[in-house]
């Protein structure tokens, strides 16, 4: 139906992916500008060091350390309540860590304001969608782009040249980003009028718009059917191919196993394992804690 947004419709999934990657390469060039990243591909871009978060007496995260390497897709999994989202929130400045630190490109993000952390290059989406409902899809993305804009209030008031220049490039880049996630045709639709799947994609586009070095996705596939999950996996791969590093929290094991390079497993606020998907799949501790006990499915 709306295949124009995702390359020519193919007969098989593999062909689709190839076609999609090709189409997106052109779009991606417009969507992603040159980024100045201090670390080389394969080096640690984020280091989480002995991160502990306590809420009163409850230890939500207990001395968790892991790293994210530039250019990889890192999965963060664990049963409900394991501390995945807490780790996310501590990394993005929503919660203040009780102890420990998070380094982005070697710089500590501790004590920084959330908007400053975003500008440092750590963007995220939300588990429960949190778009700006009364704004159009394009406006939502441009809010993300504004994180890199330098127009002052006076500049906007008097429509100074920088404001005009930034507004014009914002439209182009915003549209390119919407095309990148496959919802360009919805640019003028209010975010709250978009269907669920498009809202999820819009969240990713808005996070990408802040021009992050690391993109953190908090359960982006929640509520998706298997076909939609396939598309999402393709999109995440394209995002990585475009030079972003991705941290992915996900419940769906098929998705996590299919798309990640490495997986960190949390349980009860502690790190249980940290390895490639194949090893994780066969790790008896992980199976016991998470994978192998279907009766524990719905926590």
């Amino acid at each position: 139906m709306s295949s124009e947004t995702f390359g020519s419709p193919g007969t098989g999934t593999a062909i689709d992916h190839a076609a999609e990657l090709e189409v997106d390469a052109a779009v991606a060039a417009a969507a992603a500008p040159d980024r100045d990243i201090a670390v080389e591909v394969g080096d640690n871009i984020v280091e989480v060091k002995n991160l502990t978060v306590k809420f009163g007496g409850l230890v939500a995260l207990d001395d968790v350390s892991f790293t994210i390497k530039r250019g990889e897709i890192l999965g963060l999994i664990g049963p409900n309540g394991a501390g995945k989202t807490t780790a996310f929130n501590a990394m993005t400045g929503v919660y203040k860590p009780t102890s420990g630190d998070v380094l982005l490109e070697g710089k500590s993000i501790k004590g920084r304001k959330q908007h400053a952390i975003t500008r440092l290059g750590l963007a995220r989406t939300f588990q429960n969608i949190r778009l700006f409902g009364e704004m159009t899809a394009l406006e939502n993305v441009v809010v993300g782009l504004d994180a890199r804009h330098r127009t002052s209030v006076v500049g906007a008031l008097l429509r100074l040249p920088r404001h005009i220049r930034e507004e014009k490039t914002a439209i182009d880049r915003g549209m390119a980003l919407l095309e990148f996630v496959g919802i360009a045709s919805q640019a003028g639709v209010l975010a709250r009028h978009l269907p669920y799947g498009y809202q999820r994609r819009l969240e990713i586009a808005r996070a990408l718009a802040t021009d992050p070095k690391v993109l953190c996705l908090d359960e982006p596939a929640a509520g998706f059917n298997p076909a939609e999950k396939e598309e999402l996996m393709a999109l995440i791969r394209t995002i990585r191919a475009d030079g972003y590093t991705v941290l992915l929290i996900e419940h769906d094991m098929k998705l996590v196993m299919g798309v990640t390079d490495r997986i960190v497993v949390l349980e009860f606020g502690r790190k249980l394992a940290d390895d490639t998907p194949t090893v994780i799949r066969n790790d008896p501790r992980v199976i016991a804690a998470y994978l192998g006990e279907p009766e524990d499915d719905v926590a």
Binding site: S2, T5, P9, E20, I183, S185, Q186, P195, G197
Partner: peptide, 18 residues
Amino acid sequence: QGHAAPPAATDAGKGAAS
């Protein structure tokens, strides 16, 4: 688009095709 018809459901992209 020609005509701007909002999609009825979540069948984004090739969801319907594959």
